[in-house]
């Protein structure tokens, strides 16, 4: 779908601070993986490369999820023994 021009992917410049506006725009586009997709589609991605990338992303997502859970467990504040495992 075509998005409306100058409404989609647009950031206003405030107080003549162009760099801040650019940073916000670039950060949003980077986080939404629009830049990643742009870089990826410059050249043909062979099927083996696609499989490798997707598998890697899956593993990374699993690792991140587990790690996040661990961090939340360690940082949890409301517990009987505040430092489990220590004396």
């Amino acid at each position: 779908m075509r998005h409306a021009s100058f409404i989609a992917r647009t950031v206003f410049v405030q107080n003549n601070d162009v760099e801040a506006a650019c940073r916000i725009l670039n950060r949003i586009l980077g986080r939404e993986e629009i830049f990643d997709q742009f870089r990826r589609t410059r050249f043909y991605e062979k099927p083996y490369q696609y499989r490798r990338r997707v598998n890697f992303e899956k593993c990374k997502a699993l690792y991140n999820e587990d790690m996040q859970r661990k961090i939340e467990f360690i940082l949890r504040k409301n517990r009987v023994d505040p430092f489990p495992g220590s004396l």
Partner: peptide, 29 residues
């Protein structure tokens, strides 16, 4: 940045990079 240095009052910045999730086959690597 250069446009700003020249003295132009930039109102907004729009990104219009063409990105597709189903592009025709791109050139070889």
């Amino acid at each position: 940045k250069g446009l700003q240095m020249a003295g132009i009052n930039i109102v907004s910045i729009t990104d219009n990079t063409r990105v597709s999730w189903y592009p025709p086959r791109p050139r070889k690597q």
